[in-house]
Each structure stands twice: as structure tokens, then as C-alpha cells.
């Protein structure tokens, strides 16, 4: 029993990311409204961000900014040895900064395309658009 509990504690946020990701995936596959699909894609991307940030977590560590004296910035001032275990893993945060930016850019482009779709067909419901294409 305690094994199961410890396994749950060790992995539950990975399950949350999977749940979130599947919600996004379902929205992309199952929804007919094009904006809802865009939201689904965004949820999907957010789930991945949650996953990466989870990798970066480290028990008992603080944000990855080296504590330095008021002199500030000059590399000579840090006399004490820096232990890697004191600070969070910075790499996933860097990667996710990139992924967030990419997500924003994709969202902008998707919205622009949605506007273009709306201008063209007068609706954002996929089945209505398809029936309009067929009539044409």
C-alpha cells in the first residue's frame, strides 16, 4: 500500500500533464468549431510546458539565480562554492521559455488564419464550411 502511495506521490504531476494533454488532443480531434480546436492545441502545448517544468523541479532548491553580494554581477565577487543541489535545474525553464514563445507565435498565426477562414466562408463551424465547399 505504502509503495503505491509513494509511487503516486512521485508521479502524480506527470499524470496531470497527461490528463491535460489528452483534453487538448480531444478538443483538436473531436470539436467542430475551429476556435475550440485552436484552444485545444494551446492546451496541448501548455501540458508539455507543465511536463518540462516538472522535470526541472528539485527538492530543497531555490530559483536558479546565484546569490551574490551587493557589488553585483562581477564574477570575482562570488567567493563561496556553488552547489548544484542548491538551485533548480535551469535548462527546462530555458527550453520552456522558447516553447511559450513558439506557442504564442502559433496562436497568433492560427488566429490570423481563423480570421481569413471567417472572411472566406462566413462561419467557423467546420461542417458548415465543408457543406459550403461542397455546394460550390
Amino acid at each position: 500500500m505504502s509503495e503505491i502511495i509513494s509511487s503516486v506521490v512521485a508521479h502524480y504531476n506527470y499524470w496531470i500533464y497527461i490528463a491535460l494533454m489528452m483534453i487538448g488532443l480531444y478538443a483538436v480531434i473531436g470539436k467542430k468549431n475551429l476556435i475550440k480546436k485552436i484552444i485545444g492545441v494551446n492546451i496541448f502545448q501548455t501540458a508539455i510546458i507543465l511536463f518540462y517544468v516538472s522535470i526541472g523541479a528539485k527538492k530543497g532548491a531555490t530559483i536558479p539565480i546565484i546569490h551574490h553580494g551587493p557589488g553585483g554581477g562581477h564574477h570575482e565577487t562570488t567567493a563561496s562554492v556553488i552547489e548544484a543541489s542548491q538551485y533548480m535545474n535551469p535548462l527546462p525553464h530555458v527550453l520552456m521559455l522558447t516553447a511559450i514563445v513558439v506557442a504564442v507565435a502559433t496562436l497568433g498565426v492560427a488566429l490570423a488564419l481563423a480570421i481569413k477562414v471567417y472572411n472566406q466562408y462566413g462561419t467557423l463551424e467546420e461542417d458548415e464550411i465543408l457543406s459550403r465547399i461542397r455546394v460550390r
Binding site: 539565480i65 553585483g72 538551485y87 535551469p90
Partner: peptide
């Protein structure tokens, strides 16, 4: 000092 900036 901000390692995220340094890596980024």
C-alpha cells in the same frame, strides 16, 4: 547571476 538568462 541569473542562470536562466545565461543559458538562454
Amino acid at each position: 547571476p541569473n542562470i536562466v538568462t545565461a543559458v538562454l
